[in-house]
Write a protein that binds this DNA or RNA. Structure first.
Length: 513
RNA sequence: GCGGAAGUAGCUCAGUUGGUAGAGCAUUAGCCUUCCAAGCUAAGGGUCGCGAGUUCGAACCUCGUCUUCCGCUCCA
């Protein structure tokens, strides 16, 4: 089976068993929006709990908040999203290809640099050891011409981008005589802005309603509450603020199932440190976060770091944790050293002093921030794609099994009477009663026992408890393990403890570094 | 947004030259009572993605539209 086939099966399986549905399906769906079903929501909640507890419960210097999705519009000016989240796009009419205008120009600039470098190389060969590069660059006519134009175009591009002047930006493309790499023509459309932030209105239109945005990231809710939390929580640097919440991005193309959605959920922790101490913390959090992923037991080889060369406007270091999905290694989490960019800008834009007085050093400063930001939906997809397996059994039959780590499984225990008579269902019902306040349970008496095991395998239930005739005599039942399909006989009274030991989150926390 | 492919029951799919829609699995009820699914009986479930058009008649032909997948493009 190819990875592509596997991915398709996973999508079908997710729908068939109630994990993930296309949104508004009865109206033909809504592009790149999905709903979580009865099992999907359990899985997702368990993932969130694993993250939340590993951050907030296990660290006495990390606390959580839940900020609103709506934020003051100025927030997004301070964060840089109003400027940087707008991509200027241009289409070539012949090839029908779309490009980012500034990227086209950047490419052209790079080509000019290459030209100059080639001239230098040629001259070096000609003059040999006597070659003076500095003099050559400042006197050679060809180099001066190319370089001069390059610098002028670069200046105009920066000007146009800063002023948000789309027409000027297009003129730069025209003047550079940039051709489409595909069609080779210069038949360009206008430059258009594509805003990745969703807009809506607050207040009645008649009263001068103002435009507000659905947050494109949850981080800003933490930054604007920095002082509130630090002061009311008596937090001392270094400390962190964690948050789980929805964010929204109007992506040009959003695809690959729930990997890239327009509405998605983030789990973010912003860790505030002394200026200058951010790099050790950045390294520490990279390690901590990687161990969190690897504790799930999907195999260390399926994870890797991708260190960013090109940094976002706020960062001085950034890395992704990538997981090997059926469609390749892709980002599931980002660890960014955000410097004092965010707090500093909020200080500037709000006019409020956002600083921390450090009693140890006696200094007041804007803290630096190390961010860990993980996509909940990508985690769901990671768990599903790593867990899905089709196995050939000894008897020649096949089974589909989701090997979801027990603490994350949507259903922990299924209780099954071997037959639905002779008082076995009644015993099963009692067992459910003893477990259901602590664990997600299911009861099933329909069809043969083997079939019921398969159904539980398909949704990833780690344990099946089977009540048989012996149970009536000695108050024991069998526990059947999903992964090995082996069974063991235990006393009914021991069940709560046995199950609890097997499904507790502690089993994951124990593997964390 | 472009190009290609696709959309028929919960799932996987069939459906002939245009003649009022089928299978397997799944579901529900009953029978059977059996520790690794697919025994027996019965039932429910589809305005064939949506909307127009052509036609006496459209799942099938034409146009539009929506959605999904693949490739490009894009991606804090």
């Amino acid at each position: 089976m190819t990875q592509e086939e596997l991915f398709k099966k996973l999508i079908a399986h997710s729908k068939e068993y109630g994990f993930i549905f296309p949104s508004s399906e009865i109206y033909d769906g809504l592009s790149a929006v999905y709903d979580y079903g009865q099992l999907g929501v359990e899985l997702k909640n368990n993932i969130k709990k694993y993250w939340w507890d590993s951050m907030v419960k296990l660290h006495d210097n990390i606390v959580g908040i839940d900020a609103a999705i709506f934020m003051h519009p100025r927030t997004w000016e301070a964060s840089g999203h109003v400027g940087a989240f707008n991509d200027p796009l241009i289409d070539n009419r012949d090839s029908k290809k779309r490009y980012r205008a500034d990227v086209l120009i950047e490419d052209w600039l790079a080509k000019q640099d290459e030209k100059i470098a080639k001239e230098v190389e040629k001259a070096r060969k000609r003059f040999g050891e006597n070659f003076d590069e500095g003099q050559f660059l400042s006197t050679n006519a060809r180099v001066l011409e190319v370089g001069g134009k390059r610098d002028e175009m670069h200046r105009r591009m920066v000007e146009a981008l800063t002023a948000n002047d789309l027409e000027a930006l297009r003129q730069v493309i025209v003047d550079c005589e940039i051709v489409c790499p595909v069609s080779g023509t210069r038949n360009w459309t206008e430059v258009r802005q594509f805003n990745l932030m969703f807009e809506t209105k607050i207040g009645a239109a008649a009263d001068g309603a103002s435009t507000i945005y659905l947050r494109p990231e949850t981080a800003q809710g933490i930054f604007v509450n920095f002082l509130n939390v630090q002061k009311t929580g008596r937090m001392k640097i270094p400390f962190g603020i964690a948050q789980i919440g929805k964010a929204f991005r109007n992506e040009i193309v959003a695809r690959q199932f729930i990997f890239r959605m327009r509405e998605f959920e983030q789990m973010e922790m912003q860790f505030f440190v002394r200026p200058g101490e951010e790099m050790p913390w950045y390294e520490k959090w990279k390690e901590t976060r990687m161990s969190w992923h690897r504790a799930l037991g999907f195999g260390d080889a399926r994870y890797r770091f991708h260190d960013h060369d090109k940094l976002a406007h706020y960062a001085n270091a950034a890395a992704d944790v990538e997981f090997e999905f059926p469609f390749g290694f892709k980002e599931v989490e980002g660890i960014h050293s955000r410097t004092d960019f965010d707090l500093g800008n909020h200080q500037k834009f709000s006019g409020r002093k956002i600083q921390y007085f450090d009693h140890e050093t006696g200094e007041s400063y804007v803290p630096y921030v190390v961010e860990t930001s993980i996509g909940v939906d990508r985690m769901v997809l990671q768990v599903l794609s790593a867990s899905y397996a089709e196995e050939k059994l000894d008897n020649g039959e096949e089974r589909v099994v989701l090997r979801i780590p027990a603490p994350l499984a949507p259903v922990k225990v299924a209780v099954l009477p071997l037959v639905k008579k002779d008082g076995l269902p009644e015993v099963a019902a009692e067992i459910i009663e003893s477990l259901k306040f602590d664990h997600a349970t299911q009861y099933d008496e329909k069809d043969s026992i083997g079939k019921r095991y398969r159904r539980q395998d398909a949704i990833g239930t780690p344990f099946c408890i089977t009540v048989d005739h012996q149970s009536l005599e000695d108050n024991t039942v069998t526990i059947r393990h999903r992964d090995t399909m082996e069974q063991q006989r235990v006393a009914i009274t021991d069940l709560p403890q046995i199950i609890n030991n097997k499904v507790t989150m502690r089993n994951l926390f124990a593997k964390l570094k």
